[in-house]
Design a protein around this nucleic acid. Structure first.
Lengths: 165, 165
DNA sequence: GTAAATGCAAATTATTTGCAATTAG
DNA sequence: CTAATTGCAAATAATTTGCATTTAC
Protein backbone atom coordinates (compact mmCIF):
# COMPACT_ATOMS: atom_id res chain seq x y z
CA UNK A 1 0.00 0.00 0.00
CA UNK A 2 1.32 3.45 -0.84
CA UNK A 3 0.13 6.68 0.64
CA UNK A 4 -3.02 7.86 -1.11
CA UNK A 5 -1.00 11.04 -1.69
CA UNK A 6 -3.70 13.62 -1.24
CA UNK A 7 -2.01 16.87 -2.13
CA UNK A 8 1.36 18.53 -1.79
CA UNK A 9 1.04 19.32 1.86
CA UNK A 10 -1.92 21.57 1.01
CA UNK A 11 -1.14 22.56 -2.58
CA UNK A 12 -2.53 21.07 -5.73
CA UNK A 13 -3.40 17.39 -5.90
CA UNK A 14 -1.81 14.89 -8.19
CA UNK A 15 -4.90 14.65 -10.38
CA UNK A 16 -5.16 18.42 -10.56
CA UNK A 17 -1.61 18.60 -11.81
CA UNK A 18 -2.47 16.13 -14.53
CA UNK A 19 -5.48 18.20 -15.48
CA UNK A 20 -3.36 21.31 -15.77
CA UNK A 21 -0.78 19.46 -17.83
CA UNK A 22 -3.51 18.54 -20.29
CA UNK A 23 -4.68 22.14 -20.43
CA UNK A 24 -7.98 21.70 -18.61
CA UNK A 25 -9.71 24.73 -17.21
CA UNK A 26 -9.55 24.40 -13.44
CA UNK A 27 -12.80 25.43 -11.84
CA UNK A 28 -13.49 25.10 -8.16
CA UNK A 29 -15.59 21.99 -8.60
CA UNK A 30 -13.06 20.41 -10.93
CA UNK A 31 -10.30 21.05 -8.42
CA UNK A 32 -12.40 19.54 -5.66
CA UNK A 33 -13.20 16.42 -7.65
CA UNK A 34 -9.53 16.10 -8.52
CA UNK A 35 -8.62 16.29 -4.87
CA UNK A 36 -11.22 13.76 -3.84
CA UNK A 37 -9.95 11.40 -6.51
CA UNK A 38 -6.36 11.91 -5.47
CA UNK A 39 -7.22 11.03 -1.91
CA UNK A 40 -9.19 7.95 -2.83
CA UNK A 41 -7.42 4.64 -2.53
CA UNK A 42 -10.49 2.67 -3.56
CA UNK A 43 -12.67 2.48 -6.67
CA UNK A 44 -15.60 4.81 -6.01
CA UNK A 45 -18.63 5.19 -8.21
CA UNK A 46 -20.05 8.55 -9.22
CA UNK A 47 -22.50 8.73 -6.37
CA UNK A 48 -19.74 8.11 -3.89
CA UNK A 49 -17.51 10.72 -5.48
CA UNK A 50 -20.38 13.15 -5.38
CA UNK A 51 -20.97 12.37 -1.72
CA UNK A 52 -17.30 12.94 -0.84
CA UNK A 53 -17.10 16.14 -2.83
CA UNK A 54 -20.45 17.46 -1.73
CA UNK A 55 -19.65 17.21 1.95
CA UNK A 56 -16.71 19.54 1.42
CA UNK A 57 -18.46 21.98 -0.82
CA UNK A 58 -22.14 21.83 -1.50
CA UNK A 59 -21.68 24.04 -4.56
CA UNK A 60 -21.38 21.03 -6.79
CA UNK A 61 -23.96 19.05 -8.68
CA UNK A 62 -23.88 15.38 -9.56
CA UNK A 63 -24.10 16.30 -13.24
CA UNK A 64 -20.74 17.97 -12.92
CA UNK A 65 -19.27 14.88 -11.34
CA UNK A 66 -20.57 12.79 -14.23
CA UNK A 67 -19.17 15.27 -16.75
CA UNK A 68 -15.85 15.41 -14.99
CA UNK A 69 -15.21 11.71 -14.68
CA UNK A 70 -16.10 11.29 -18.32
CA UNK A 71 -13.71 14.07 -19.29
CA UNK A 72 -10.93 12.66 -17.14
CA UNK A 73 -11.49 9.23 -18.59
CA UNK A 74 -11.22 10.63 -22.11
CA UNK A 75 -8.02 12.38 -21.12
CA UNK A 76 -6.61 9.12 -19.83
CA UNK A 77 -6.46 10.36 -16.25
CA UNK A 78 -9.12 8.01 -14.96
CA UNK A 79 -10.08 4.45 -15.73
CA UNK A 80 -13.65 3.28 -15.75
CA UNK A 81 -14.50 -0.18 -14.48
CA UNK A 82 -17.64 -2.22 -14.34
CA UNK A 83 -17.43 -4.68 -11.49
CA UNK A 84 -21.10 -5.47 -11.68
CA UNK A 85 -23.73 -3.87 -9.54
CA UNK A 86 -24.93 -1.45 -12.17
CA UNK A 87 -22.64 1.52 -11.58
CA UNK A 88 -19.37 2.39 -13.20
CA UNK A 89 -16.49 2.77 -10.78
CA UNK A 90 -13.38 4.84 -11.28
CA UNK A 91 -9.74 4.81 -10.34
CA UNK A 92 -6.86 7.07 -11.29
CA UNK A 93 -4.65 5.72 -14.04
CA UNK A 94 -1.23 5.44 -12.50
CA UNK A 95 -0.42 1.90 -11.61
CA UNK A 96 1.03 -0.17 -14.40
CA UNK A 97 -1.07 -2.87 -15.97
CA UNK A 98 -2.95 -4.58 -13.21
CA UNK A 99 -6.15 -6.48 -12.57
CA UNK A 100 -8.71 -6.86 -9.84
CA UNK A 101 -9.84 -9.41 -7.35
CA UNK A 102 -13.27 -8.69 -5.94
CA UNK A 103 -14.03 -10.07 -2.49
CA UNK A 104 -17.50 -11.51 -3.00
CA UNK A 105 -18.34 -11.17 0.67
CA UNK A 106 -17.39 -7.54 1.15
CA UNK A 107 -17.27 -6.06 -2.34
CA UNK A 108 -13.74 -4.84 -1.64
CA UNK A 109 -11.45 -4.68 -4.63
CA UNK A 110 -7.84 -5.78 -4.46
CA UNK A 111 -5.39 -4.96 -7.19
CA UNK A 112 -2.68 -7.21 -8.43
CA UNK A 113 -0.30 -7.62 -11.32
CA UNK A 114 1.09 -10.80 -12.74
CA UNK A 115 3.56 -10.87 -15.56
CA UNK A 116 2.87 -14.51 -16.38
CA UNK A 117 -0.70 -13.59 -17.03
CA UNK A 118 0.25 -10.71 -19.33
CA UNK A 119 2.38 -13.04 -21.39
CA UNK A 120 -0.27 -15.71 -21.49
CA UNK A 121 -2.97 -13.26 -22.59
CA UNK A 122 -0.84 -12.05 -25.49
CA UNK A 123 -0.11 -15.60 -26.46
CA UNK A 124 -3.75 -16.69 -26.39
CA UNK A 125 -4.77 -13.75 -28.55
CA UNK A 126 -1.99 -14.49 -31.01
CA UNK A 127 -3.02 -18.10 -31.25
CA UNK A 128 -6.53 -16.96 -32.18
CA UNK A 129 -5.09 -14.69 -34.85
CA UNK A 130 -5.40 -11.42 -32.98
CA UNK A 131 -3.12 -8.70 -31.79
CA UNK A 132 -3.97 -7.91 -28.18
CA UNK A 133 -5.26 -4.36 -27.80
CA UNK A 134 -6.41 -4.55 -24.22
CA UNK A 135 -7.67 -7.09 -21.76
CA UNK A 136 -9.13 -7.48 -18.36
CA UNK A 137 -9.00 -10.18 -15.77
CA UNK A 138 -11.32 -10.17 -12.84
CA UNK A 139 -11.21 -12.70 -10.05
CA UNK A 140 -14.06 -13.17 -7.64
CA UNK A 141 -12.93 -14.82 -4.47
CA UNK A 142 -13.58 -15.57 -0.85
CA UNK A 143 -11.08 -15.16 1.93
CA UNK A 144 -9.35 -18.18 3.43
CA UNK A 145 -10.32 -20.02 5.47
CA UNK A 146 -13.80 -20.49 4.09
CA UNK A 147 -16.18 -18.95 6.66
CA UNK A 148 -19.25 -20.76 7.96
CA UNK A 149 -21.39 -22.18 5.13
CA UNK A 150 -23.76 -19.20 5.30
CA UNK A 151 -21.59 -16.13 6.13
CA UNK A 152 -24.39 -14.83 8.37
CA UNK A 153 -25.55 -11.84 6.38
CA UNK A 154 -23.34 -12.52 3.42
CA UNK A 155 -23.52 -10.54 0.25
CA UNK A 156 -26.90 -10.49 -1.45
CA UNK A 157 -26.73 -10.31 -5.20
CA UNK A 158 -27.21 -6.71 -6.29
CA UNK A 159 -30.37 -7.72 -8.11
CA UNK A 160 -30.50 -4.40 -9.83
CA UNK A 161 -28.23 -3.97 -12.77
CA UNK A 162 -25.83 -6.34 -14.38
CA UNK A 163 -23.95 -9.12 -12.69
CA UNK A 164 -20.25 -9.96 -12.92
CA UNK A 165 -20.70 -12.99 -15.07
CA UNK B 1 -17.76 -25.05 -34.34
CA UNK B 2 -20.70 -27.29 -33.55
CA UNK B 3 -24.10 -27.03 -35.11
CA UNK B 4 -26.17 -24.41 -33.26
CA UNK B 5 -28.57 -27.31 -32.77
CA UNK B 6 -31.88 -25.58 -33.17
CA UNK B 7 -34.38 -28.28 -32.35
CA UNK B 8 -34.84 -31.99 -32.74
CA UNK B 9 -35.73 -31.87 -36.38
CA UNK B 10 -38.81 -29.78 -35.48
CA UNK B 11 -39.47 -30.91 -31.93
CA UNK B 12 -38.50 -29.12 -28.75
CA UNK B 13 -35.30 -27.13 -28.56
CA UNK B 14 -32.40 -27.86 -26.30
CA UNK B 15 -33.17 -24.90 -24.05
CA UNK B 16 -36.82 -25.85 -23.89
CA UNK B 17 -35.86 -29.28 -22.68
CA UNK B 18 -33.79 -27.71 -19.94
CA UNK B 19 -36.73 -25.53 -18.96
CA UNK B 20 -38.98 -28.55 -18.71
CA UNK B 21 -36.42 -30.42 -16.67
CA UNK B 22 -36.43 -27.58 -14.17
CA UNK B 23 -40.20 -27.63 -14.08
CA UNK B 24 -40.86 -24.33 -15.80
CA UNK B 25 -44.28 -23.66 -17.22
CA UNK B 26 -43.90 -23.63 -20.98
CA UNK B 27 -45.93 -20.86 -22.53
CA UNK B 28 -45.82 -20.07 -26.22
CA UNK B 29 -43.53 -17.09 -25.74
CA UNK B 30 -41.25 -19.00 -23.41
CA UNK B 31 -40.97 -21.78 -25.95
CA UNK B 32 -40.21 -19.28 -28.69
CA UNK B 33 -37.51 -17.55 -26.68
CA UNK B 34 -36.04 -20.94 -25.86
CA UNK B 35 -35.93 -21.81 -29.53
CA UNK B 36 -34.36 -18.51 -30.51
CA UNK B 37 -31.73 -18.99 -27.85
CA UNK B 38 -31.04 -22.55 -28.93
CA UNK B 39 -30.50 -21.40 -32.48
CA UNK B 40 -28.20 -18.53 -31.51
CA UNK B 41 -24.52 -19.16 -31.83
CA UNK B 42 -23.63 -15.62 -30.75
CA UNK B 43 -24.15 -13.55 -27.60
CA UNK B 44 -27.31 -11.53 -28.25
CA UNK B 45 -28.64 -8.79 -26.00
CA UNK B 46 -32.28 -8.57 -24.98
CA UNK B 47 -33.24 -6.25 -27.81
CA UNK B 48 -31.77 -8.62 -30.33
CA UNK B 49 -33.52 -11.60 -28.76
CA UNK B 50 -36.75 -9.66 -28.84
CA UNK B 51 -36.20 -8.82 -32.51
CA UNK B 52 -35.56 -12.44 -33.43
CA UNK B 53 -38.52 -13.70 -31.46
CA UNK B 54 -40.85 -10.94 -32.53
CA UNK B 55 -40.34 -11.55 -36.22
CA UNK B 56 -41.60 -15.09 -35.74
CA UNK B 57 -44.47 -14.25 -33.49
CA UNK B 58 -45.49 -10.70 -32.75
CA UNK B 59 -47.46 -11.89 -29.72
CA UNK B 60 -44.52 -11.27 -27.48
CA UNK B 61 -43.45 -8.22 -25.52
CA UNK B 62 -39.97 -7.12 -24.62
CA UNK B 63 -40.92 -7.26 -20.95
CA UNK B 64 -41.43 -10.99 -21.31
CA UNK B 65 -38.02 -11.35 -22.89
CA UNK B 66 -36.47 -9.50 -19.97
CA UNK B 67 -38.37 -11.63 -17.50
CA UNK B 68 -37.44 -14.82 -19.30
CA UNK B 69 -33.71 -14.22 -19.59
CA UNK B 70 -33.62 -13.29 -15.95
CA UNK B 71 -35.46 -16.45 -15.03
CA UNK B 72 -33.24 -18.62 -17.20
CA UNK B 73 -30.18 -17.00 -15.73
CA UNK B 74 -31.42 -17.76 -12.23
CA UNK B 75 -32.05 -21.34 -13.27
CA UNK B 76 -28.50 -21.60 -14.57
CA UNK B 77 -29.63 -22.10 -18.14
CA UNK B 78 -28.24 -18.80 -19.39
CA UNK B 79 -25.19 -16.78 -18.59
CA UNK B 80 -25.24 -13.01 -18.53
CA UNK B 81 -22.24 -11.07 -19.78
CA UNK B 82 -21.31 -7.43 -19.86
CA UNK B 83 -18.94 -6.79 -22.71
CA UNK B 84 -19.37 -3.05 -22.46
CA UNK B 85 -21.75 -1.05 -24.57
CA UNK B 86 -24.40 -0.74 -21.92
CA UNK B 87 -26.47 -3.85 -22.54
CA UNK B 88 -26.25 -7.27 -20.99
CA UNK B 89 -25.67 -10.09 -23.45
CA UNK B 90 -26.63 -13.71 -22.99
CA UNK B 91 -25.42 -17.12 -23.99
CA UNK B 92 -26.62 -20.60 -23.09
CA UNK B 93 -24.63 -22.29 -20.35
CA UNK B 94 -23.24 -25.39 -21.94
CA UNK B 95 -19.62 -24.97 -22.85
CA UNK B 96 -17.21 -25.70 -20.07
CA UNK B 97 -15.30 -22.84 -18.51
CA UNK B 98 -14.30 -20.48 -21.29
CA UNK B 99 -13.57 -16.85 -21.89
CA UNK B 100 -14.08 -14.28 -24.60
CA UNK B 101 -12.04 -12.36 -27.09
CA UNK B 102 -13.85 -9.34 -28.46
CA UNK B 103 -12.82 -8.14 -31.92
CA UNK B 104 -12.58 -4.40 -31.37
CA UNK B 105 -13.22 -3.68 -35.04
CA UNK B 106 -16.34 -5.77 -35.51
CA UNK B 107 -17.66 -6.39 -32.01
CA UNK B 108 -17.69 -10.11 -32.74
CA UNK B 109 -17.06 -12.36 -29.76
CA UNK B 110 -14.84 -15.41 -29.98
CA UNK B 111 -14.81 -18.01 -27.27
CA UNK B 112 -11.77 -19.85 -26.08
CA UNK B 113 -10.61 -21.99 -23.22
CA UNK B 114 -7.12 -22.27 -21.81
CA UNK B 115 -6.23 -24.58 -19.03
CA UNK B 116 -3.00 -22.76 -18.24
CA UNK B 117 -5.04 -19.68 -17.52
CA UNK B 118 -7.43 -21.52 -15.23
CA UNK B 119 -4.51 -22.79 -13.22
CA UNK B 120 -2.87 -19.40 -13.10
CA UNK B 121 -6.05 -17.67 -11.97
CA UNK B 122 -6.47 -20.08 -9.07
CA UNK B 123 -2.87 -19.62 -8.15
CA UNK B 124 -3.04 -15.84 -8.18
CA UNK B 125 -6.13 -15.85 -5.99
CA UNK B 126 -4.51 -18.25 -3.56
CA UNK B 127 -1.40 -16.09 -3.36
CA UNK B 128 -3.64 -13.17 -2.36
CA UNK B 129 -5.28 -15.28 0.30
CA UNK B 130 -8.49 -16.04 -1.55
CA UNK B 131 -10.32 -19.07 -2.72
CA UNK B 132 -11.40 -18.49 -6.31
CA UNK B 133 -15.18 -18.43 -6.65
CA UNK B 134 -15.41 -17.26 -10.23
CA UNK B 135 -13.41 -15.23 -12.68
CA UNK B 136 -13.56 -13.69 -16.08
CA UNK B 137 -10.97 -12.93 -18.68
CA UNK B 138 -11.77 -10.73 -21.61
CA UNK B 139 -9.36 -10.01 -24.40
CA UNK B 140 -9.86 -7.14 -26.78
CA UNK B 141 -7.96 -7.66 -29.98
CA UNK B 142 -7.52 -6.74 -33.60
CA UNK B 143 -7.13 -9.22 -36.40
CA UNK B 144 -3.69 -9.84 -37.92
CA UNK B 145 -2.30 -8.29 -39.99
CA UNK B 146 -2.98 -4.87 -38.55
CA UNK B 147 -5.24 -3.10 -41.09
CA UNK B 148 -4.55 0.40 -42.37
CA UNK B 149 -3.83 2.90 -39.57
CA UNK B 150 -7.44 4.14 -39.59
CA UNK B 151 -9.65 1.10 -40.31
CA UNK B 152 -11.87 3.25 -42.53
CA UNK B 153 -14.97 3.43 -40.39
CA UNK B 154 -13.55 1.41 -37.58
CA UNK B 155 -15.33 0.92 -34.31
CA UNK B 156 -16.58 4.03 -32.65
CA UNK B 157 -16.67 3.82 -28.91
CA UNK B 158 -20.21 3.08 -27.82
CA UNK B 159 -20.27 6.39 -26.05
CA UNK B 160 -23.48 5.48 -24.34
CA UNK B 161 -23.14 3.21 -21.38
CA UNK B 162 -20.16 1.68 -19.81
CA UNK B 163 -16.93 0.78 -21.50
CA UNK B 164 -14.97 -2.44 -21.22
CA UNK B 165 -12.14 -1.00 -19.21
C1' DG C 1 -14.33 39.01 -23.73
C1' DT C 2 -15.10 34.42 -25.07
C1' DA C 3 -15.30 29.73 -25.12
C1' DA C 4 -15.83 26.36 -21.70
C1' DA C 5 -18.01 24.78 -17.31
C1' DT C 6 -21.93 24.56 -14.18
C1' DG C 7 -26.65 23.74 -12.14
C1' DC C 8 -31.04 22.29 -12.79
C1' DA C 9 -34.43 19.88 -14.61
C1' DA C 10 -35.94 17.34 -18.36
C1' DA C 11 -34.48 13.60 -21.57
C1' DT C 12 -32.41 8.97 -22.58
C1' DT C 13 -31.38 4.18 -22.06
C1' DA C 14 -31.62 -0.27 -20.05
C1' DT C 15 -34.34 -2.73 -17.16
C1' DT C 16 -38.05 -3.70 -13.69
C1' DT C 17 -42.73 -3.82 -11.98
C1' DG C 18 -47.99 -3.21 -10.82
C1' DC C 19 -52.06 -4.89 -12.33
C1' DA C 20 -55.72 -6.85 -14.87
C1' DA C 21 -56.34 -10.44 -18.30
C1' DT C 22 -54.70 -14.99 -19.99
C1' DT C 23 -53.18 -19.69 -19.63
C1' DA C 24 -50.39 -23.95 -18.38
C1' DG C 25 -50.67 -27.81 -15.66
C1' DC D 1 -59.29 -24.32 -10.85
C1' DT D 2 -55.25 -21.79 -9.33
C1' DA D 3 -50.99 -20.07 -9.35
C1' DA D 4 -47.83 -18.53 -12.77
C1' DT D 5 -47.24 -15.74 -16.95
C1' DT D 6 -48.05 -11.99 -20.05
C1' DG D 7 -48.76 -7.21 -22.02
C1' DC D 8 -48.88 -2.67 -21.32
C1' DA D 9 -47.69 1.26 -19.45
C1' DA D 10 -45.81 3.51 -15.71
C1' DA D 11 -41.73 3.26 -12.49
C1' DT D 12 -36.68 2.89 -11.60
C1' DA D 13 -31.82 3.68 -11.96
C1' DA D 14 -27.81 5.32 -14.03
C1' DT D 15 -26.28 8.59 -16.94
C1' DT D 16 -26.65 12.38 -20.41
C1' DT D 17 -28.10 16.80 -22.16
C1' DG D 18 -30.41 21.59 -23.29
C1' DC D 19 -30.13 25.98 -21.84
C1' DA D 20 -29.46 30.07 -19.30
C1' DT D 21 -25.87 31.70 -16.12
C1' DT D 22 -21.21 31.88 -14.28
C1' DT D 23 -16.27 31.76 -14.74
C1' DA D 24 -11.32 30.60 -16.03
C1' DC D 25 -7.91 32.11 -18.81
Amino acid sequence: MDTPASADREGISRIERLCIERGLKMTGQRRLIARVLSESADHPDVEELYRRAHERDSHISIATVYRTVRLLEEKGILERHDFGGGRARYEPTEHGPHHHLIDVDTGKVIEFADERHEVLAREIAARLGFQLVDHRLELFGRRFPDPTPEPAGGRRKPRSGRDPA
